[in-house]
Design a binder for these strands. Sequence first.
DNA 1: AATGAATGAGTATTCATTCAT
DNA 2: GATGAATGAATACTCATTCAT
Lengths: 192, 192, 192, 192
Amino acid sequence: MTSTKDTILACARDQFLSEGYKGLSMRKIAIKAGISATAIYRHYDNKEELFHHVVKKGFATYTQYLRPAQNEATAELRLTKTLSNALDFVLDHPRYFELIFVKSDTKDELARHDDLREDSKISFDFYTVRLQECMDEGYLKKDNPGEVAALLLSAFIGFFSLYISGLLPRTKTEIKALYWRSVHRILDGLAR
Amino acid sequence: MTSTKDTILACARDQFLSEGYKGLSMRKIAIKAGISATAIYRHYDNKEELFHHVVKKGFATYTQYLRPAQNEATAELRLTKTLSNALDFVLDHPRYFELIFVKSDTKDELARHDDLREDSKISFDFYTVRLQECMDEGYLKKDNPGEVAALLLSAFIGFFSLYISGLLPRTKTEIKALYWRSVHRILDGLAR
Amino acid sequence: MTSTKDTILACARDQFLSEGYKGLSMRKIAIKAGISATAIYRHYDNKEELFHHVVKKGFATYTQYLRPAQNEATAELRLTKTLSNALDFVLDHPRYFELIFVKSDTKDELARHDDLREDSKISFDFYTVRLQECMDEGYLKKDNPGEVAALLLSAFIGFFSLYISGLLPRTKTEIKALYWRSVHRILDGLAR
Amino acid sequence: MTSTKDTILACARDQFLSEGYKGLSMRKIAIKAGISATAIYRHYDNKEELFHHVVKKGFATYTQYLRPAQNEATAELRLTKTLSNALDFVLDHPRYFELIFVKSDTKDELARHDDLREDSKISFDFYTVRLQECMDEGYLKKDNPGEVAALLLSAFIGFFSLYISGLLPRTKTEIKALYWRSVHRILDGLAR
DNA sequence: AATGAATGAGTATTCATTCAT
DNA sequence: GATGAATGAATACTCATTCAT
């Protein structure tokens, strides 16, 4: 009962997630969706708009992972849960991670579309707020929460960027453990 | 007295550095090199092999930036110099940074070519050794130097990935200052 | 209270008049008319038929410009008024002028459709009759009125063809003045 | 021994001359030339450039027809010969005539390319000079030669525009005779 | 060592039109 | 009367690559 429009989007997403940007051709998407290439244009004006929607979907998915962390009881738990959910997101959807944080094609998209910059900012702010809370509650020492958020996010992005490159352990158990040890190396420095 | 082969490589590199991956077409490279497109095939089997050499060149350049840090007097200075040189590298050659650390096309390359993995490992090990030294000399507390290297490198990559995405301050002065504050936030936690 | 059929025709005409033949796509017409592209087919069998009607409309408009000239008092005035009205027609509707007298697509239409040939002939005959009258009244010397009509029409068409090409003065004042000087150069030769 | 480049040009010309602008597709030209569509791009940058050359060829052909008229003994003969050669040109190459004087696509070309405007002006000036001579030699009465040239050219263009539309006699003998009668109707008015 | 010619597969996109509803 | 979905053919053009010279 999914509409063709949704099917196209899903296929575009899958195509991108499996083959990267260069595999994202209208024709291939159409084949995957079982329709003619031109039929896509009934639903999306052009490739850019379609890709834009794919990216939006990526951000939406990411946000869905993060959001529940807000409901934890303490600032410390909310931060930890945030980091935990972010971890899950990457392991569940590594290509989405790339799409949002890594691919430079997406960066061009980001530069052009204000709404994507907004999406990006929202997730950034989510970290900032979590850190602000931790500083307020005394779990972390006073610091510039925006800059600390940038640091945490940097480490997060870089960490999984290395992971995807194959330069870190590949088993999920190992990478999870290393992730948490790395997180704590940073947080320890920020603590008191 | 540079050979045509070198000219081609240099042009491919310049083309990539200025226009990104999509600008890296055999034709454009040929035009830039002042030769015919087919002449490239005298020197490189195909585009992939040429691109492979571009990536190699990127690694070599990066290594050249890092290496002088070895000559500093103390372990702490050698680490600081390493981080300083890495900073210079990114600001001087942002596209090379992308090429080596960000672009997923390169990651495919990495996966396929052992020599690139080797290059990658060498730069990784450079950090590890610097950190080992710092721990040995008591500048940093004892820890797993490889994992700490991964952490530092992660933060480094993620930081400039955000920078390139336009999510961090864009002026060189500001980004440099933020870089060092971020570095020290991490190192402080690792110190004692 | 205009029917959809009329709306479509009007939009097709406007589209043609503003964007030329290449702008005359069913989709664009539909958008302009505020209906779906397929709805057009309720009213016109295909693009050709629709275009045919546009041309018909062009002829009708042209005829409307010419006709009032019949009511002038003398043969000379009727001829002058005819030439004056034809001038107004071109300056008011240059695209219609193209459509009727210039575009070779229309010529194919003409070749295929007898009714258009008829329309064409009617406007041609209008000139012929005007000239016959002038000869009868002694304003012009006796000659073959059909051939003189062809001459006048030729000059008229060619003149504005050059005008549209940008090879004649572009301001309305100038082109009008040149038009009348040209007309009189011809009429002087035909007079006595 | 004609080069492929020439073959392509010839096929493009033929294609245009036989099917008009809408028949002028790279694919069709390629088929006609017996090469692949992409091979065209080895020789012409794009369709516009190719078409530009076709138009140039048209002007060149036209000029070749006109030029010999310069060698006649008297101004009157030079003018008559010019009109005679122009007649031959149209009857020999009606599509070229359309290309140069009628097709509105060419007008866009004209607007964009200075060299075509120059070609156009040259043929225009040819008439102007002929008329100036006739006025100087007393064959025609003193008048503005540029404006008279515009008039003659207008009549010429319009005349054959009607001819191509099928609104004038189609046999070569008849059209030639009518042409000369029309020419003389104009020249008589300009004489003394 | 290098070139010019050519190719086939591929790109996004537009178009007139058909069909089921 | 009208729509949304879909199609197949066509458009200009780019690309990496091959081949004969």
